[in-house]
Design a protein around this nucleic acid. Structure first.
Lengths: 234, 234
DNA sequence: CGTGCTGTTGAGGACGATCAATGACGGTGG
DNA sequence: CCACCGTCATTGATCGTCCTCAACAGCACG
């Protein structure tokens, strides 16, 4: 997508809003008339089960669309919601604006299609990952998050995720995630500091995880641009 | 997508081809200049790991596109391939033809985007499913396959999958899948006949699986039409 | 009539869940 | 300033699920 097309998209954004940690951005079972774009912060795409457990499908960073699926498949109700992990802010684009851009030519549609394909690809990758050990699984999630954050210019080795978040993303119990983290600390991959997930040896982490990173190699990413719009420090 | 648009698509198809069980339709690491459409038979979207194991991401039926992801993300190499489960035949559409249709207006692009979104949605569902028990997992896969087959007019209660296929799809060992199948037979959900997966009590199967089926409720499915084109019995 | 693939069965062991209790930290109100 | 509470992190013990290894039976194929 060329620069002037990004500009057009940006000009359609309206209604900035702030949300605190734990707040819902996209509630399940809610019908929408606009898509939401994450401007700053971290969010979890998740699903709540009847018994109160939750499953995190992916994490989102600035530049990600939160609820494109509702635009494409409005009837479908996955019971999938998006929840704030940290403080953050969002912008909104009306469906009618999207309609207009799509009608203009195939470029914009291709870009959105591509974004969805990437999501699907990452989901598939998660499936692969799911069948391996807990150590590998957790390490893989950490690698993936580091890589995703780096792509949008966030370079701290400290991840803003609680062990609960990691457990729900990895499909493990919190207790076991804790033990895995202890192990990673023992291997000098995570810092010794308690109450914090800080990666100190990324190379070894990638080795433990069997992390490839190729699947994140996104040609023509849709991200990278919101940073310029928002300009807020992170 | 309206009927006349489907017709256009059909007219762009060329190069029918037959493949035997076990054959590759889409090999990993291969660059393409066309997309492939499954006309008849069953295929597995899978990935081979270094150690020889394989992981099945999904099964495909007539009307499914085998390799849309290569069109959208040509650079990306997931090492994902498509393999024949049964005998089957395919057709081919050149990238240039797709380009042409996309340029014509947003309808076609939306349909393809939607198909991808559905894939992503099914992948996510699989992730949910993965964290539950083996019994639930296998039952869920069986339900899903029955539902998918029904959508395109296949109503036999006999699934053409080996226990190995099911194991690779569920992320379980073959041995354990066998035991789960024994259990399902004991519950009179599967037929007693060995060497065959035949569902006799679908309702109870759905109950065991916690199967919802809503996530397969595809508005404006891209399938259903190849059946009319090909006309071959199944 | 061997050879190979799928399915079946048994025994032992590793991994991760669950239950339960405690510690560390931050915020709130008396 | 301190007691109280909620959330997150940590640790121990026990138990169930599922994997691995190993052997064998049925069936198709040449």
């Amino acid at each position: 997508m060329a620069d002037h097309e990004l500009d057009e998209l940006v000009q359609l954004m309206r209604g900035h809003r702030h949300v605190g940690p734990g707040g819902d951005i996209v509630r399940a079972h809610e019908s929408m008339r606009h898509v939401t774009i994450l401007l700053d912060g971290v969010a979890a795409v998740q699903r709540r089960l009847e018994d109160g457990r939750r499953r995190i499908y992916s994490f989102q960073y600035p530049g990600d669309f939160c609820d494109l699926s509702h635009y494409v498949l409005p009837k479908r109700d996955d019971a999938v919601g998006v929840q704030a992990i940290t403080d953050f802010s969002i912008a909104i684009i009306d469906y009618t604006s999207i309609d207009g851009l799509l009608a203009r030519g195939p470029t914009f549609g291709l870009a959105l299609w591509r974004a969805t394909m990437l999501d699907a690809s990452i989901s598939r990758h998660r499936l692969l990952n799911a069948s391996s050990s807990a150590l590998e699984g957790v390490a893989h999630i950490l690698c993936e998050q580091l890589a995703l954050r780096e792509k949008i210019g966030i370079t701290t080795p400290i991840l803003p995720l609680t062990q609960i978040d990691i457990a729900d993303a990895a499909g493990l119990s919190v207790v076991h995630v804790n033990r895995v983290i202890q192990t990673l600390r023992g291997l000098d991959i995570l810092s010794q500091e308690n109450h914090r997930v800080e990666v100190v040896d990324r190379k070894q982490l990638a080795e433990v995880a069997g992390f490839d990173g190729l699947y994140l190699d996104m040609p023509q990413l849709l991200s990278n641009w919101v940073v310029q719009i928002d300009g807020s420090p992170r």
